[in-house]
Design a protein around this nucleic acid. Structure first.
Lengths: 236, 236
DNA sequence: CTTGACATGGAACGCATGTTCGTGTATAAA
DNA sequence: TTTATACACGAACATGCGTTCCATGTCAAG
């Protein structure tokens, strides 16, 4: 006979996965037009067409004449996976709020959080997805500093960048640390290597030369750098 | 003074509990008029009034001009139950999962989301707290790239860094963009300035000289950089 | 080639729904 | 009392958004 209806196609799965992503992100379902944008289908009627199919096939449920009244049936995505069409995102929505303790300036030691308890005003905090942090780090030991000035350029860190740190007084080889150099009276960010009796501080920018410290006692490790975040101004 | 604002009242809690019940039952949030019926408030503006209060008090989140774009903040009901009248503004803890599309290399154009195929590879995604992103960015338009090579050092971006970008083909002054230089056949990250008929590309590292492009047509903007994230190896 | 189900677009149409505004009442402080 | 503010109502108003209709394109069976 005539042309037969295909089963789930790329647009179907795209719609389903988008619906899941959207619902998770915003807490409510997308509108048809938003699905249009995502799937780059220009006509609402086409999306409507696919949604009708998905409903008759039991993947979604629609409430007539209700805005965003389109919901995933819970095992729809599981069925998709089992049909080997699409891998789907596992979830781990866990946020860690890290206090922004102050600024890190070349000429001053860094402000370290009081070890007793975290008092911090929520205004100045940085939210990081837990999945972005090294697994074992305890969020309570973390804090963030905003870099002030251009003195960390050789660590590839710019004015305004935020560094996420962990309290530490010593470091292992290869870790990036914030150190206070007693003989220079300055704070700097470098990769840390202990070599024999000496300490080598290696800039992140590999075109630059390392600093070799003969007397390890003149190097005070103030924290380990776990992450650097640069937020760029979203110009109008 | 005059009459003080009462804290959470019976109507507030009625709205909150109804929202939870409704969301659980239908899978999407109620409309204002449906809340009217439930709470036996005759006017939508009154419900709107309460919703505004609940939002400023951090119990719910509202998306402007979006049907049913009203969601519970997760511990709102817990706070209700514990009866704490906490007027603390709860930031909504919302994660955005940004697909890691590939790598950005000096010698190649950047991979832009095909916007056609299902582009979700759960293994390679970056989670960013929504509060860290510019408010108006739609997460759907964002993607992430891992920087490969040392060629972006003058943009203060290192090998292994992850840049979070937004699709764009043109830029405003002062925005950091990924551009493809036709005459050099390379991708680079620079601050973008249009000056007269020319384009100035300014390295983030201010000690370095800008590139002046006489013919703007040889500069193809491939995306705006919103954020740079550097995860440092957590040495043992 | 013709046919007819499937697939896409585009553009209205109309209800659903958030928003705003004018107005009115009650309460508490000055 | 006066006054400022919280609370309340209803009615428009402006969009958001689902729905429908019509035209067109594609492809396989007859």
């Amino acid at each position: 006979m005539v042309k037969r209806s295909q089963g789930i196609g790329p647009r179907h799965s795209k719609i389903l996965t988008f619906m899941e992503k959207y619902q998770k992100q915003y807490g409510f379902p997308p509108s048809i037009r938003e699905i249009c944008d995502e799937t780059e289908i220009s006509s609402t009627s086409v999306v409507n067409y696919y949604l009708d199919q998905l409903e008759t096939w039991g993947y979604i449920h629609r409430e007539k004449n209700i805005s965003r009244g389109i919901t995933l049936i819970k095992d729809a995505l599981d069925r998709l996976i089992s049909e080997n069409v699409t891998p789907i995102t596992g979830k781990l929505d866990d946020l860690v709020r890290i206090p922004l303790m102050g600024r890190i300036v070349a000429g001053l030691p860094i402000p370290v959080p009081p070890s007793d308890l975290a008092y911090f005003d929520p205004e100045s905090a940085i939210d990081i997805a837990r999945s972005m942090l090294p697994q074992r780090e305890k969020p309570e030991e973390l804090f963030a500093l905003e870099v002030q000035g251009e003195s960390m350029v050789d660590a590839m860190v710019n004015d305004g960048d935020v560094v996420i740190m962990k309290k530490a007084t010593e470091a292992h080889n290869g870790e990036m640390v914030a150190v206070w150099l007693l003989d220079k009276d300055e704070t700097t960010l470098k990769y840390f290597y202990r070599e024999g009796g000496k300490v080598r501080l290696q800039p992140a920018n590999r075109t630059m030369q390392p600093i070799i410290i003969d007397d390890p006692r003149t190097v005070q490790v103030q924290g380990k750098v776990l992450m650097v975040v640069r937020r760029l101004p979203a110009a109008a």
